[in-house]
Amino acid sequence: MVDVGDDAPDFTAPLADGDVDSFTLSEELGDEPVVLAFYPGAFTGVCTDEMCTFRDNLGAFEDVGATVYGVSVDTPFANNEFRDQNDLSFDLVSDSDKEAIEAFDVVDEDFAGFGYAVAKRSVFVVDADGEVTYKWVTDDPGVEPDYDEVEEAAAEAAE
């Protein structure tokens, strides 16, 4: 399992950014931290609340230079529609082959008893060197992260 102090696993997946591009974590690391907010599924109640809360608090992350990405197993087309409908101003990673959720060990193998594997709701902050400096994972898809704690972790990773 990926933990604080570990190198973040690298992965490549489609990026829903209004178009469909490619995202490789190692290529996104620069001088500032990256926040990876894994969520089970677009268009679901708690996931919509979570992504909209990140949207509403995006300025706090931008102030420290952190870049926020939502990550789910949804297709890039679904994620683009999710972005549009919720006016999300950050990009969503479409981990439909489950490479990222497996690498970060945040797979919910039987989401809501439907036998469908999705991301556990979780947040990782990765600093410019690729080190995980913050980790939050829950087995309860109805629980949201402590957003103030995530903002603080991003600010600390930027120092």
Score class of each variant (00 low, 15 high):
D148N: 13
F111T: 07
E102N: 15
V64Y: 07
T24A: 10
S122L: 04
A8Q: 02
S96M: 11
D56I: 12
G41Q: 13
E102P: 05
F38W: 11
V73Q: 01
Q85Y: 03
E50K: 10
T48M: 13
V73H: 01
V132Q: 06
G65E: 09
F11M: 12
A117M: 08
F11S: 11
D7F: 03
T75F: 04
V64I: 09
E151D: 05
N57T: 14
E32A: 14
D129C: 05
G65K: 03
A154F: 02
L58M: 13
L15V: 04
G113T: 10
D110F: 07
E149N: 13
P14I: 00
E131S: 11
G59E: 15
D146Y: 05
E28A: 10
V68D: 07
P9I: 08
L29E: 12
S72W: 06
M51Q: 15
D146A: 14
A153Y: 04
A119C: 12
E81T: 14
D148A: 06
L36E: 05
T67Q: 15
P9D: 10
A117Q: 11
V137H: 04
K120H: 13
L92F: 01
N86K: 13
K120A: 06
N79L: 14
A37K: 08
V143Y: 01
V143F: 00
D21C: 01
D129Y: 05
F104A: 08
V150S: 09
F111E: 09
D84A: 14
E27A: 14
A16Y: 01
L92D: 04
V137A: 07
V125N: 08
T12D: 05
E151G: 07
D3E: 15
D49Y: 10
A100R: 05
